[in-house]
Write a protein that binds this DNA or RNA. Sequence first.
DNA 1: CGCTACGTTGATCGCACTCAAGTATAGTGG
DNA 2: CCACTATACTTGAGTGCGATCAACGTAGCG
Lengths: 252, 252
Amino acid sequence: MSRRRKTPVQIDVVEPAACSVDVRRAILQKVPFLNGLSASDIDVVNEQFREFGFEPGESIYFSGETAVNLYVVAAGQVKLLRHSVSGQDVLLDVLQPGDYFGNLSTLADDVYPDTAQAHTAVCVLSISSEAFRTLLSQYPSVALSVLDITTRRLRDTQKIVQQLSTDSAEQRLAAVLLKLADKLGEVTSDGILIQMPLSRDDLAQMTGTTTETASRIISQFQKEGVVHGGRQWIAITNKAKLEAIAGTEDPA
Amino acid sequence: MSRRRKTPVQIDVVEPAACSVDVRRAILQKVPFLNGLSASDIDVVNEQFREFGFEPGESIYFSGETAVNLYVVAAGQVKLLRHSVSGQDVLLDVLQPGDYFGNLSTLADDVYPDTAQAHTAVCVLSISSEAFRTLLSQYPSVALSVLDITTRRLRDTQKIVQQLSTDSAEQRLAAVLLKLADKLGEVTSDGILIQMPLSRDDLAQMTGTTTETASRIISQFQKEGVVHGGRQWIAITNKAKLEAIAGTEDPA
DNA sequence: CGCTACGTTGATCGCACTCAAGTATAGTGG
DNA sequence: CCACTATACTTGAGTGCGATCAACGTAGCG
């Protein structure tokens, strides 16, 4: 059997230059909640943003810090997580380019409830919460878009609460793989590849289990021919079966 | 020892008359996200609402139904829950007068992700999602208020995800009691009484456990003198200790 | 006054956590 | 180019929390 390559996941090179002022407008035009704005409006908005780059693992802000900014992912992926006192982290979301995070309320003494960490090399745009708030007042259509996105996230998070309350670790793992495949899936010779670096530990933090349990379940999935993966990557080879597992109980 | 009364929880009598057209304006004026509107604006909005009454246990809508309305609690309490295929329900939230629920997006083929059920006798006001959407466009300050409320709910729900992922059943129970006391607490001779009918089963559905486990833990809390409760009610007698339990681990 | 729903308590079982050791892979420097 | 190292991943053995099944007590309602 042939030797497997390092990882089938394509690592984007995010250079500082790729995040310069010149291309910011192009990025902003693709941000979902700004799609109601004209080119000249975008230019006005563009003025208010600053850009920053982060290496994988670097934190963009920590939970507990005074929350003064709103961020938009320009390139790369950002993890939102919460630390518990016992040391284990919970991974709430993995944000893609165009997603917002941070604070959008203007209460001065508000703090970030979660920590934002660069998962890959990322470029983010930032704006003060106050300025963003003004923007929302000026452009009601933007406010409604942001409201829709937030409502969608609330629903998704409520679904996770349900899964944590009623489903087994195996079911939750299957569900999270399907969700990621839906967002980042790419059909390859390995199956539906999830286009992001994804460790067993990441999966554990997303499903409320331990690294060991996640590893055992993924190994089991591999034996059953449901997924195919390696170090920091995973692909789905039998989506139907995975859906059956994620459902109420396996259909056996 | 003297005989205990039925329940110290005060049951509001919600009569149809208490929910009539005449008092709707008064109710709407107290709704948090409408507080930026003038009296005449309220009157215009008032025209668009209809009122409905429900008995305890009745469903206002079911998950899966086409989502066409947005609701506001006028009186009583409404439970938001999700059913799992295995038959167990997850209680996501208990809504108070002034809280909104239902659908606020206007995608025609959208369905309710959760079920709304009257917890007590309730009166709700309803408006079509479309009309509410128009309202949000006309009054940007209302849209921002709704966005703030939704963001707050998202954060609260994310906290629950963390608790389900990292905390023990005992810790989650303590945390939910403290949260309810914060919202509905009333100082009485029994301690901080949670002003709502609250069964062991409700607590179980809020914390992702079973009725039996919730009962065992509440019994334990009673032995430790932390809470005091009976059929469908509970009061906190030692808040500091409960907070210690809800924290990382008991301080022993 | 009996029926029904809520609550309690006990016994048993199993999923997933914990602790522990060991393997494999990718990047690093000689 | 290859040994070296760090990190990811795997696998095993033992344990315990909480689910499940079961039976019984109890309060409130009609």
